[in-house]
Design a protein around this nucleic acid. Structure first.
Lengths: 195, 195
DNA sequence: TCATTTTTTAAATGTCAAGTTAAATTTGAA
DNA sequence: TTCAAATTTAACTTGACATTTAAAAAATGA
């Protein structure tokens, strides 16, 4: 990859970051190309140089986030750890990622409000991939006898819902810091699985 | 109240219902006054006769939903019931209400993306009123020794998050019906509070 | 250096929906 | 039945924003 291409890649990432931060602040529809450009001291024309259109930019932003989340989870999945610790680590990393990225709705909102056709399919399958990891952890825990027998799908969704909601109520001024909070949420959630 | 006024009230409610259903489907920003009117076989001019502007309509819609939720919860709070059953009933009713109304984000999304100033304050305080009811139930349960000693705020948010997320994954074709599902989610969540 | 390619800018263009208005129609009370 | 008030309709204005274009600026490399 030439210097030029590397620079272009870097710029694309910057634009995506800018888009993500503005989406987190204003919401998807209220985000304008002007906003995204202005944050980087560019004009919107430049953004169009790197991305086909607004939808393309917003789609790629969401995709990047989901891919990062999946990378996070897969890294933990591949480790040699007791199942309980593994699931807890997954939860802690998820919550911390959510708080630092402050993406608002990375995994939360209904994608069909924003995407259609192939884009929607791609987002859905990335989300499924993520869900599936958690299902696998729960199933392993049940098999090995460490977890109670539960309805995997329901418990997985309870866990995801409780974690994603953090973004709505977390404030940095709280008494607990990010990591402590993530720890204690995951402790509570594990009680559903462990007596 | 004259016949005329009654009719006007009824119409307002119809318009609000229409707005809610379109918001649920398309999201807040993508909802147009034309959509809202068309669903009732009206034109947007008529909607403007009943509501000052789009923001006014959308605000009143959200407010109505929150007020209904609060009414639901207060009705249960006032009953003579063992604390465990009371909390469970609150959760079941919450989940059922969410599913039937399908409002998408009644309590879920960040209100500051949609409202500002006095409207925002009003929404926030309605939400706080709701949260506070749940906090009270948890605190009562802890005091009376039926519940584990937990961080009330964190557990309340876990519960709210898990419940509100249902709207994202519930599908009527699932094996469980609304009530069964609500029951089993609340059972799992109670495990956090009860050994 | 200088020609060429890439990147950025600023201005224009087009679209869409919100908001407004006034005329037409309907309603219900006298 | 009649008429004033209430309601609806449809056309119009306006503004915001996505998108396009052409020209300017910057970077590259021969």
């Amino acid at each position: 990859m030439s210097l030029r291409e590397k620079k272009a890649e870097k710029k694309k990432k910057e634009i995506i970051q800018s888009a993500l931060s503005i989406i987190a602040e204003k919401g998807y529809h209220a985000t304008t190309m002007e906003d995204v450009a202005a944050k980087l001291l560019m004009t919107k024309g430049s953004v169009y140089y790197y991305f086909k259109d607004k939808q393309d930019l917003l789609f790629k932003s969401q995709k990047m986030l989901l891919e990062q989340s999946i990378q996070n989870i897969e890294e933990i999945m591949s480790k040699e750890l007791p199942i309980i610790e593994k699931l807890q680590k997954v939860m802690v990393v998820h919550i911390e990622f959510l708080i630092t990225e402050r993406t608002g709705f990375a995994m939360g909102a209904r994608p069909d409000q924003f995407f259609a056709g192939d884009q929607l399919q791609e987002i859905i399958s990335l989300r499924q991939k993520y869900s599936h990891c958690i299902d696998k952890l729960i199933a392993q825990g049940i098999e090995s006898g460490y977890f109670n027998k539960v309805d995997t799908k329901i418990v997985r969704n309870i866990i995801l819902g409780a974690m994603n909601y953090v973004i709505e109520w977390y404030s940095s001024d709280g008494s607990k810091d990010k990591n402590e909070l993530a720890k204690s949420i995951s402790d509570y959630l594990l009680r559903i699985l462990i007596n």
